[in-house]
């Protein structure tokens, strides 16, 4: 399964949108947080988990999905939300805690919910799994079109939720795909110190489902593997597990000095930037011109800028609005 040129451009552009948005967030996040770093200060308070470097996982999977398909994501959700088509303005306003945000400021960056495109996430490790299994069960029971994709980090696979969910999905043969973004680090603990197997795809064997490992953080390879797994799920042949080697280009959260990370690895980050690699690929293989690239870059940047402007200009909710929306 290989992407068309159009699909490749789509993936490139959505990687850029996510990256630009995060670069702008990164800059604004630090406002009010220097010289002393205080997480509660500035226009964007709270924890901030940037996804830069991991964009290939999001686009390589979500390019195959329709709005009616379900995605559950993690505490590091921006790239996936962008690729799933979450309303960018409302998401950004949510990250700023504004009244116009997806939930009016009740969730923030770790709790992005956009039912219009069936996207949700959770700040709790491993808890993307159960809801994706349930959504897949719902589609099966209702005989309704659609698959569910649960994203999770490689640190989540040692949680019970992961194993329980895979088993349940396999026993019930549900249309769900589990996508592990392996960035090598669970906050400060390397995968080698936390996980007994080198690659988690072999854990699929324990549940009698196909497992795939995708090295290289390459959107085209992810496209191929995810495309097959999603097609399989759509045919009613059951769940699959995919582990993708990816790259955490930032700290676990902003403010993380990453002293635990080898200097050589940190020095390599820029050189391993998947967006640079994708641009080079498109220019050499797909003959993307400088002018076309500029057009895409400008389009992506403008979308991110517009979202930031929308968020900045939006009003804050009133304090007492916190009492609303506990129940429907």
């Amino acid at each position: 399964m290989t992407p068309t040129r159009e699909q490749k451009i789509w993936m490139y552009e959505h990687m850029l949108v996510s990256r630009y948005l995060e670069e702008m967030i990164e800059e604004i996040y630090m406002e009010g947080k220097t010289p002393a770093f205080n997480m509660a200060a500035g226009p964007i308070p709270g924890e901030m988990h940037l996804s830069k470097g991991q964009e290939p996982c999001a686009v390589g999977v979500c390019v195959h999905l329709k709005p009616f398909d379900v995605v559950t994501a993690t505490h590091r959700p921006h790239h996936i939300a962008v690729a799933k088509g979450v309303d960018l303005n409302k998401m950004t306003a949510e990250i700023f805690g504004k009244a116009t945000g997806l939930s009016g400021g009740r969730g923030g960056h770790m709790h992005i919910f956009d039912p219009d495109v069936n996207f949700s996430c959770s700040g709790i490790i491993g808890q993307s799994v159960g809801p994706a299994v349930g959504a897949a069960l719902s589609r099966k029971l209702q005989k309704k079109e659609g698959v569910a994709v649960a994203f999770l980090g490689e640190g989540a696979v040692n949680q019970g939720a992961f194993h329980e969910g895979l088993n349940l999905a396999a026993v019930w043969k549900l249309p769900v795909i589990f996508v592990i973004e392996d960035n090598g680090w669970g906050i400060s603990v390397p995968k080698t110190a936390s996980t007994a197997v080198e690659h988690n795809d072999i854990r699929a064997q324990a549940y009698g489902i196909p497992g795939h490992y995708v090295p290289g953080n390459n959107p085209l390879e992810i496209f191929r593997v995810a495309g097959e797994a999603i097609a399989r799920a759509r045919r009613g042949e059951g769940p699959s597990l995919i582990e993708i080697e990816t790259l955490r280009m930032a700290g676990h959260f902003m403010g993380d000095a990453e002293q635990y990370r080898p200097k050589e690895e940190l020095a390599m980050l820029k050189a391993r930037d998947p967006i640079v690699a994708m641009r080079t690929y498109l220019m050499t293989v797909d003959k993307m011109s400088e002018a076309e690239d500029q057009e895409i870059v400008t389009r992506a940047r403008k979308r991110a800028e517009a979202a930031i402007a929308f968020a900045k200009e939006s009003p804050y909710p009133r304090g007492e609005e916190a009492l609303e929306k506990v129940f429907v």
Partner: peptide, 12 residues
């Protein structure tokens, strides 16, 4: 798994 699945099915 199954209570998490109930949440996902209910949302769907």
């Amino acid at each position: 798994a199954f209570i998490g699945a109930a949440v996902g099915a209910a949302a769907d």
